[in-house]
């Protein structure tokens, strides 16, 4: 896969349905969400005041930050609420291989 370094992270069943969990990979805290038919991954930190998105309530294919209820589209990382904000979460592609959630990190450029 061009531009992605794929990492085998965790068995699918370690993340309950419609919940998120955090994993630290290469110094980044990444939240992975189980949406039933697929898994989605974004940066864990809310751009507002740093709330842990892995602890948010999943609303369809969005997540709501537990601290001040900012709401993000998991697909794009875009802020849905408040409407005036245009911050964006970094998102990560995922796929499932043999019951394992595999996550695509941006390719690490070797110096």
């Amino acid at each position: 896969m061009n531009g992605h370094h794929w990492v085998r992270v965790t068995p699918c069943d370690s993340i309950p349905l419609r919940e998120g969990r955090v994993v630290t990979l290469g110094g980044r805290d990444i939240a992975i969400f189980n949406l039933g038919d697929r898994f989605m991954a974004t940066d864990n930190q809310c751009p507002h005041e740093g709330g842990p998105l892995c602890d948010g309530i999943v609303a369809g294919d969005s997540v709501v930050c537990p601290l001040h209820a900012w709401k993000f589209k998991l697909e794009t990382g875009a802020v849905e609420r408040p409407a005036s904000k245009h911050e964006c979460l970094v998102t990560y592609p995922t796929r499932i291989e043999d019951g394992i959630v595999v996550l695509g990190l941006p390719e690490i450029s070797t110096p």
């Binding site: 370094h5 990492v7 085998r8 992270v9 965790t10 370690s14 993340i15 969990r21 955090v22 994993v23 630290t24 990979l25 290469g26 992975i32 394992i100 990190l105």
Partner: peptide
């Protein structure tokens, strides 16, 4: 928190 199977 989840411990990744593969380390990065």
């Amino acid at each position: 928190p989840i411990q990744s199977l593969e380390k990065v």
